[in-house]
Simulated assay, not measured.
Amino acid sequence: METLHIVLLALIQGITEFLPISSSGHLLLPKALLGWPDQGLAFDVAVHVGTLTAIVLYFRDDLWQMTRDWSRQVVARAPATENSRLAWLLILATLPAAVCGLVFDGFIEEHLRSTLVIALTTLIFGIALGWADWRGGRARTIADITWKAALLIGLAQALALIPGTSRSGITITAALLLGFTRTDSARFSFLMSVPVIALSGGYKALQLVMQQEPAPWMELLIGAALAGVSAFVVVHYFMQYISRLGMMPFAVYRLILGGVLLLIAL
C-alpha cells in the first residue's frame, strides 16, 4: 500500500469507528471515487487493534473495575456489585452480535457488501438516529439498565453486521429509544464495543493466519497507531460534547453521505 493510502484509510477507520456515521460508508469512498484497491485483511486487523486499544485505554478504569468485581463474583463468590452487574449486562448484550456474526458472516460477505446496501442502510439508520434523539426521554442512566434493555440494545447491535448500519449508531439509537441519556447511551455503546471489536478482530486475525500471507509490518504498525490515536481523540471529544451537541448533526451528515453513496451506486 502507498503511504497516502495507509494514512488516509487508518484515519478514516479511527475517526468513524465510534461516531454514529458508518465507517463502512466512509471506507467505500476512496475506493469508489479514487479507484484505490481494497486495503486487505491484514490492514483491517491492524486498524481494529488500534481502535480497540484506544477504547480500552479511554475506559480503562471502568473496564478494570468491572473485570475485578466480575472475577471476584465468579471465582470467589463475592457479592454482586454495580460493576459486576454491568459486566454481566455487557456479556448479555454481546451475545446476539456474536451468534449472528458466526451464522450469517458468509451471507453478509457475499450479498450485503454492495455500495447500494451501504447507501440505503446509511440513510435509513440515519433517519432512525435523528428520530430517536428527538423522541427519546433522556432520563435513564447507565445504572438503570436492566437485562431486558441490555438484550434489546444487543439485538440492535447485531443489525450492525449489515454494512452501513454503524455499530455505535444503532446501539445509541436503541438506547435513546429506551429513554437513556445521550451520554450514557454513548457510554454503554462504547463499552459494548470492546468485546465486539475483540471478537471481530480475533476472527479476522484467525483468517489471516490461515491465509499465511507475509505481513507488511511497518504498514500495519503505522495503520494501527494512526487509527488508535484518532479514535481516542474522537471518543474523548464525543463524550465531552454529546449531551449538548445531540445526535441530529450526525443524522443529517448520514443523510448527505447516504445520498452521495446512492449516486455512486446508481
Results as ranks from 00 to 15, higher is better:
T51H: 13
L52R: 06
L52E: 11
L52M: 11
Y58V: 04
D62C: 01
T67F: 12
V74K: 11
P79S: 06
S84I: 06
S84F: 12
R85D: 09
R85Y: 08
L86E: 05
A87C: 12
W88R: 13
L89Y: 04
I91Q: 02
I91L: 14
L92Q: 04
V99K: 13
D105F: 06
E109C: 00
H111E: 14
R113K: 13
T115V: 13
L120Q: 11
T122M: 12
T122N: 09
I124D: 01
I127A: 15
L129I: 04
G137Y: 00
R138M: 08
I142H: 03
D144W: 06
D144Y: 04
D144E: 13
T146I: 10
L152T: 12
L155S: 07
A156N: 08
Q157W: 03
A158R: 04
A158I: 06
L159T: 02
A160V: 05
A160H: 02
R167S: 08
R167I: 10
S168L: 05
S168M: 04
S168A: 14
S168R: 05
L177A: 14
G179D: 07
F180K: 02
T181M: 09
R182V: 05
R182E: 08
T183C: 00
T183H: 09
D184I: 00
D184M: 05
M192Q: 11
